[in-house]
Design a protein around this nucleic acid. Sequence first.
RNA 1: UCUUCAGUAGCUCAGUUGGUUAGAGCACCUGACUGUUAAUCAGGGGGUCCUAGGUUCAAGUCCUAGCUGAAGAGCCA
Length: 468
Amino acid sequence: MEQIKRTKIVDLLKLDPAGEIVNVKGWVRSKRGNKNVSFIALNDGSTIKNIQIVVDSASFDESVLKPITTGACISVNGALVASQGQGQTMEINASEIQLYGEADPNVYPLQKKGHSLEFLREIAHLRPRTNTFSAVLRVRHAMAYAIHKYFNDRGFFYLHTPIVTASDCEGAGEMFQVTTLDLNAIPKTTEGGVDFANDFFGKATSLTVSGQLEGELGAMALGAIYTFGPTFRAENSNTPRHLAEFWMIEPEVAFNEIVENMDLAEDFLKYLIQYALDNCQDDLAFLNEMWDKELLERLDFVVKNKFIRLPYTEGIKILEEAIAGGHKFEFPVSWGIDLQSEHERYLVEKHFKCPVILTDYPKEIKAFYMKQNDDGKTVRAMDVLFPKIGEIIGGSQREEDYDKLKTRIEEMGIPMKDMWWYLDTRRFGSAPHSGFGLGFERLLLFVTGMGNIRDVIPFPRTPNNAEY
RNA sequence: UCUUCAGUAGCUCAGUUGGUUAGAGCACCUGACUGUUAAUCAGGGGGUCCUAGGUUCAAGUCCUAGCUGAAGAGCCA
């Protein structure tokens, strides 16, 4: 086969189809035709679009064409010409075809017809070859890039916080233990507990549930930082919105107060969504057509409208008025409750029909590190609530006062021995600062319109599932 | 973890108040067709009805337990 430099399909489609000889390599999506001519829809992952390969049967031996089935990988040399057919502007008249790898149709699980997402989850090693997952994964990449670009352009520094952590008080849920101890012969202390003195780190360690506390250390030196890495929660959560391993973005900014934190969160989300609209048109158009007919409309709406900013106390009033007006909730509403999903959904989807930033929650239902308001009852928390997916961002202004923070830690029974380094930020050169956490896969749920979080990460980790 | 629903061909599903040999579409194989668009047309092969018990003359269908998946809830991002 003649050696010609390969052109990706995404680049090919920008060329003038004037008969230039090109090479494409990719995976066969379908082959159809008659005894005179065959049409191969070829995809190489560079775009959701296929290139049509036209094969004149007279020019090729049947033994060459037969193994070219759905899923096979081939390399094609041929002339890039304007298409005679209706469905595409250009196509390649094949002159040479090389088979890289066949895909026995009797056992290859992907067909040219559609599959259920549940079935595709069982073949996570092959599902990136489908239109839906390749589109989702390209959008995922674009969002990861846009996140780095957003922060870099604004002078934030990317801080790498540890994945293995010794603090068990990050306060965000159950943790996975990390150990090299022999689980069949666990050493015990004289009191009967596990003796971690001989463990790898000499103490109990876990996988991180949040990089926030370390992020604060960075912000108090570099001014503005963000983290973007994997986090782990050993919660037995079986929902379309939870993963045991997921990626989180956590910006932290010195001197920002709660309003500036809200400004940052809103601007950041709108930037990312606009970036997707500008750079992932083909993939979003496909997802809109295939899975969620209101996707583009919804993305456009979020970019164009101001988020509602609402104190928790006002939110409770609205919910109480709704009840007075005859609306039925499963859970009761009163000041001090943690809002249930149905309450958040009412505010976002029924009352405002717009993203909502809820602020100033009762301190009892929020984490120890949030800055206490002067009313003595609430803290400067902010949750960004989105239609369809609920809480997409959780954040706050942090308590910068050493004594107030220490008191709160004691009140909540958090072991002080693990917190000394965190408290040092308030002992030495403390300053107001704020930050938030954005769940990367929750963002992707919203941007792609997919309904289940297991379908926006290549290899989902959920309770009872760590295949691949 | 709780509640609800589901599990029948490779995939998506139908299968009546329990009643002959369990069906369809797609996929696959064979053939037809001079340019198709998830091509079309004709024919063919393909089943541990999730598993284990139970009720019954008779179970894909009813009951019990388990396994798996999904949706809702809790927790949260």
